[in-house]
């Protein structure tokens, strides 16, 4: 029997697409100043930005988990009027240009903002142009990724397991923590990874809402952008580092969580 060949009309664009995705990464590796790399990596500014990026992305992801998983549960398990609308609203930050998101955050959490003014006068909390502001900006942009992944996992999970748990005496909260959450753990992990990766790369909302202060709000993507204007080599080194960190963490989590799903 003759093996069916894949049609060229599909093969050619597929390979071109692959090339298009890989080529920039190759270019980055090609232009990397490998000889001066060790000394450049240990420059204090770089490590500060890296540490800030990892910290804010991780805290933002944790915040998204705490708020996003219950929201995903609500969307997947409870039918309430306007659920479709809520689901649509949740995905808005996904399609919103991040800069617009940053402006919107300023209007709400800024010193003269709807909630910001009250936060400032009551608790003395100021979010814009602080590290906390970076976290808020990243969480705002990244949370839809988590919610969509977790809601999908919840919809895919058999709700009758929850009924079985109820017949064994488990209330809704216990059922959620002991049955539902473990069942969708791979989906939650996948969503958290996506969310974290998105937060790590966040640029537009962060620079708009939190500014670009080294050591305080200057995350890796901001540092890359700034370096590009003054020192191309530094920009390349920073980019390479960001690429490396993302790939390593994604790969390790993938082995541990996602593939076991």
């Amino acid at each position: 029997m003759r093996r069916r060949r894949a049609p060229l009309a599909l093969i050619v664009p597929a390979l071109l697409g692959l090339l298009f995705l890989i080529l920039p990464l190759v270019g980055l590796l090609y232009r990397t100043p490998w000889t001066t790399l060790p000394s450049r990596l240990t420059e204090p500014g770089i490590l500060t930005a890296l540490r800030l990026s990892l910290l804010t992305a991780t805290v933002a992801t944790l915040g998204c988990l705490v708020l996003g998983v219950p929201l995903a549960w609500l969307l997947a398990r409870v039918s309430f009027p306007g659920r479709r609308l809520v689901r649509a609203l949740v995905t808005v930050p996904l399609v919103l240009p991040p800069v617009v998101g940053g402006v919107a955050l300023l209007l709400v959490f800024g010193r003269r903002g709807l909630i910001g003014e009250w936060l400032d006068s009551t608790f003395g909390i100021t979010l814009p142009f602080t590290t906390a502001g970076v976290i808020v900006a990243e969480a705002f942009v990244a949370m839809p990724f988590l919610i969509i992944a977790v809601e999908g996992a919840l919809r895919g999970a058999d709700a009758r397991y929850e009924e079985a748990a109820a017949t064994l005496g488990a209330g809704r909260w216990t059922t959620f923590t002991r049955v539902t959450l473990p069942l969708v753990a791979p989906g939650v992990a996948a969503g958290a990874v996506l969310c974290w990766a998105r937060a790590l790369g966040e640029f537009g909302a962060t620079i708009t809402f939190a500014g670009n202060f080294p050591g305080k709000t200057q995350t890796m993507p901001l540092a890359v952008y700034l370096a590009l204007e003054t020192d191309l080599q530094a920009a390349i080194v920073l980019s390479l580092l960001l690429l490396f960190v993302s790939v390593v963490i994604l790969a390790s989590l993938r082995d541990k969580w996602i593939s076991s799903a």
Binding site: E163, A166, T167, G169, G171
Partner: peptide
């Protein structure tokens, strides 16, 4: 009586 408080096994 909600399911979890019924002395019923399934």
């Amino acid at each position: 009586t909600p399911t979890e408080r019924r002395p019923i096994g399934v």
